[in-house]
Every structure is written in C-alpha cells, then in structure tokens.
C-alpha cells in the first residue's frame, strides 16, 4: 500500500467522518493517521466542528400549537382539493 500524503489524507476527512470510506482508502487513511499527529489534530478539529453543528441542529422542538395549526391548514387544503 502506497503511503498517503497529508494533502490526500485531508481530502478524505469528510468521507471518513461520514463513515463513507471503506477498503483500501480507509486502511490508507488510518495508516496515515497512526503516523501523523498533525493530521490527527486536524481531523479532531473537523470532528468537533461537526459535533457543534449537529448539536445546534438537534435543538428545538415544535412549539405548542404549531402542529394543531398545521393540521387545520392541511385539513382545509384537503377539503379544497377534494372539492376541486
């Protein structure tokens, strides 16, 4: 297996974080990470940033009343659709 350069490794980070790497590219990246502390730090930063974004997006439910209001609007739409 050819040794992966740092530039090649960085290009694979997002796919790695998204669990979309497999086979030889995955093995090559993991081999590179075992030897390259700088790339490990960079990957850790990207992982943390992903975590921050995910946490922000996970917040917030549906405010009271919204679902009822939407159901009413949809019921009205359904009636109009059926009548047209």
């Amino acid at each position: 297996m050819t040794r992966m350069s740092c530039e090649e490794a960085v290009r694979q980070f997002f796919a790695y974080l998204d669990r979309a790497l497999s086979g030889e590219p995955l093995e090559a990246l993991e081999a590179h990470l075992r030897d390259c502390l700088d790339c490990c730090d960079r990957l850790q930063f990207n992982r943390r940033l992903d975590g921050v974004l995910k946490a922000r997006l996970a917040e917030g439910g549906v405010p009271d009343g919204v679902e009822d209001r939407l159901r009413e609007r949809l019921a009205k739409l359904g009636l109009e659709t059926a009548e047209s």
Partner: peptide, 24 residues
C-alpha cells in the same frame, strides 16, 4: 411525519413562519 417535516423546514429556512408555509 408532520413534526419532522416542520423541524426540517425550520432548520433549512431559519424562520418559523416561513417553515409553516413551507410545510403546508
């Protein structure tokens, strides 16, 4: 799936009123 669609709409447009319209 109404709540899930609404939540996705809020995340995409960032505005609750626009998200309601978009869900509808």
């Amino acid at each position: 799936h109404l709540s899930a669609v609404y939540r996705l709409a809020v995340r995409l447009v960032g505005d609750v009123a626009a998200a309601e319209d978009l869900t509808q």
